[in-house]
Amino acid sequence: MKKARRRIYPPSYKARFLKEYESLPARERAALLRREGLYCSHVISWRRTFAKRWRGRPRYLTRAKAQPYSQGAWGPE
């Protein structure tokens, strides 16, 4: 029996896929992942890789700062 091998994706494929993925509405993104045989974890890791390369952090990678309860959604008390 042959040993399974990992698939290797070239950077050009990753960039093209991310561009197409970001341009689609949410429901169609899942269809694209199924069609290409990928998981959402691929997208997450590829986004992080490209963000490190670009030295900028895209908005979807920045973490929102937590606010104290008094300044939260309920307003100041």
Rank of each mutant, 00 (worst) to 15 (best):
M1F: 11
K3P: 03
A4I: 12
A4M: 04
R5I: 14
R5G: 03
R5W: 14
R7D: 06
R7Q: 02
R7M: 07
I8V: 06
I8P: 01
Y9I: 10
P10H: 13
P11H: 10
Y13E: 04
Y13F: 13
Y13H: 07
K14A: 01
K14Q: 08
A15W: 11
A15T: 04
R16L: 09
R16H: 14
F17H: 01
F17V: 00
F17K: 02
F17A: 03
L18K: 11
K19R: 12
E20T: 06
Y21C: 00
Y21S: 02
Y21K: 03
E22W: 09
S23R: 12
S23Y: 08
S23M: 07
S23W: 11
L24R: 15
L24H: 08
P25V: 03
A26I: 08
A26S: 05
A26P: 03
A26V: 09
A26M: 05
R27S: 05
E28C: 02
E28A: 14
E28H: 13
R29F: 13
R29P: 06
A30Y: 12
A30S: 08
A30R: 07
A30D: 13
A31C: 00
A31E: 08
L32T: 01
L32A: 00
L32Y: 10
L32W: 06
L33N: 00
L33R: 02
R34V: 07
R34F: 04
R35D: 02
R35Y: 02
R35L: 08
E36Q: 02
E36S: 05
G37C: 01
G37D: 00
L38M: 04
L38D: 00
Y39D: 13
C40Y: 14
S41M: 03
V43K: 08
V43G: 01
V43W: 04
I44G: 10
I44H: 14
W46Y: 03
R47M: 05
R47A: 01
R47K: 11
T49Y: 06
T49W: 15
T49P: 11
F50V: 05
F50H: 05
A51I: 07
A51M: 01
R53H: 10
R53P: 04
R53L: 03
W54S: 06
R55Q: 10
R55C: 05
R55Y: 11
G56M: 10
G56N: 15
R57V: 15
R57G: 10
R57H: 09
P58I: 07
R59E: 09
R59F: 09
Y60N: 06
Y60W: 05
Y60E: 13
L61E: 15
T62D: 09
T62S: 05
T62I: 15
A64L: 15
A64E: 13
A64F: 15
K65P: 04
A66D: 15
A66G: 08
Q67E: 09
P68D: 05
P68N: 13
P68W: 11
P68H: 09
Y69K: 06
Y69G: 00
Y69C: 01
S70P: 09
S70M: 13
S70R: 04
S70W: 02
Q71E: 10
G72A: 06
G72S: 03
G72Q: 15
A73T: 09
G75P: 06
G75N: 02
P76D: 01
P76Y: 01
P76H: 03
P76E: 04
E77V: 03
E77P: 06
E77H: 01
